[in-house]
Computed example of a mutant assay.
Amino acid sequence: MSGSEKQTGDDQVPAWARRTAGESRWWATGAMVGLLGLQYFLPDELTPGPRWVVPAVGAVLLLVLVAASPYRLDREEMRLRRLGLLLMALLGFTMIWAVLRLVQGLIDGSVSDNAGGLLASGAGVWLSNFLVFALWYWEFDRGGPAARAHARKSYPDFLFVQMQNPDLADPEWEPQFLDYLYLSFTNATAFSPTDVMPMSRWAKLTMMVQSGISLITVSLVIARAVNVLK
């Protein structure tokens, strides 16, 4: 096969299934900054330790990651991968802590009896859930953004509409952070998959956990707030 024929064949492969330049890091970085800021403004009883600790540690990890790969997420290094996973673990631990503390407070009645404050706390926890899982989906699908840029894995963990209908999508389309943000939002509000299907077992389990957290948070906070208003 000649070089021109091989190039033509590669062009017919959708971007998500072949090597690309990698996506811009800034949407995901903006979500991480927003999530770290949100952690600072949560009530003290919903944060593990002083409220500045998680944002400070997270900011240091994020600055290292940005400095190492400031524009495109196509750099495959084990150290960077571990730092990224450490940041995801920190954000996830903080979110789970806030959910458990909120549920415990709702059950034993130790949370504020102010409906506005209760709804604000519940909204903060729900937003944390939404953003953390969006970042997890983005970080783990097909090995992460750098691995996706190098097309390391052939089979997707999440099946997007554009993958099912390639004739109706731009050949250069590939999933980026905003696609995972949409996936997380619809899963957190509908409590089930909508148009993005989980394919691997870890993806199904993770979506199930997110739906459960979202359902419990929303139902308990609303029920408590209605009771307070009465």
Rank of each mutant, 00 (worst) to 15 (best):
residue 216 I to W: 12
residue 225 A to R: 05
residue 102 L to H: 05
residue 155 Y to E: 14
residue 157 D to R: 01
residue 84 G to N: 09
residue 47 T to I: 10
residue 180 Y to K: 10
residue 61 L to Q: 07
residue 53 V to A: 09
residue 132 V to Y: 05
residue 4 S to I: 08
residue 47 T to Y: 03
residue 51 R to Y: 02
residue 73 L to A: 11
residue 51 R to G: 04
residue 171 P to G: 11
residue 223 A to Q: 15
residue 145 P to K: 14
residue 19 R to Y: 00
residue 144 G to V: 06
residue 119 L to A: 10
residue 202 W to P: 02
residue 60 V to I: 15
residue 96 I to E: 12
residue 128 S to I: 06
residue 204 K to C: 06
residue 201 R to P: 02
residue 33 V to S: 03
residue 56 A to N: 11
residue 107 I to Q: 11
residue 209 V to D: 02
residue 190 A to W: 07
residue 182 Y to P: 00
residue 204 K to R: 14
residue 159 L to Y: 06
residue 53 V to M: 15
residue 85 L to G: 03
residue 3 G to L: 06
residue 142 R to P: 02
residue 166 P to Q: 07
residue 180 Y to D: 04
residue 227 N to G: 10
residue 215 L to T: 11
residue 55 P to R: 08
residue 157 D to E: 08
residue 214 S to N: 09
residue 181 L to M: 08
residue 140 F to P: 00
residue 191 F to H: 13
residue 75 R to C: 01
residue 141 D to Y: 04
residue 159 L to H: 14
residue 208 M to I: 07
residue 224 R to F: 03
residue 50 P to H: 11
residue 164 Q to G: 05
residue 227 N to Y: 08
residue 206 T to Q: 06
residue 116 G to L: 14
residue 113 D to F: 11
residue 115 A to Y: 00
residue 149 A to G: 12
residue 53 V to Q: 07
residue 53 V to D: 01
residue 200 S to R: 02
residue 68 A to I: 04
residue 73 L to G: 05
residue 225 A to D: 03
residue 20 T to M: 08
residue 173 W to I: 01
residue 199 M to I: 13
residue 112 S to N: 10
residue 110 S to L: 10
residue 111 V to M: 14
residue 44 D to V: 00
residue 182 Y to M: 05
residue 194 T to E: 09
residue 226 V to T: 06
residue 50 P to C: 12
residue 45 E to A: 11
residue 41 F to C: 03
residue 200 S to M: 05
residue 208 M to C: 09
residue 155 Y to H: 07
residue 118 L to P: 03
residue 113 D to C: 06
residue 215 L to Q: 08
residue 72 R to H: 07
residue 183 L to K: 05
residue 121 S to E: 13
residue 54 V to M: 13
residue 99 V to I: 15
residue 46 L to D: 02
residue 119 L to C: 07
residue 150 H to L: 09
residue 150 H to R: 13
residue 168 L to K: 15
residue 184 S to L: 08
residue 69 S to F: 03
residue 34 G to L: 06
residue 165 N to G: 00
residue 214 S to L: 13
residue 128 S to T: 12
residue 18 R to E: 00
residue 60 V to D: 05
residue 13 V to S: 14
residue 76 E to H: 10
residue 50 P to R: 12
residue 189 T to N: 15
residue 163 M to V: 10
residue 37 G to C: 07
residue 183 L to E: 01
residue 208 M to L: 15
residue 74 D to L: 00
residue 211 S to Q: 14
residue 78 M to S: 12
residue 177 F to N: 02
residue 118 L to W: 07
residue 41 F to E: 00
residue 93 F to Y: 12
residue 55 P to Y: 15
residue 137 Y to G: 08
residue 62 L to F: 11
residue 14 P to G: 11
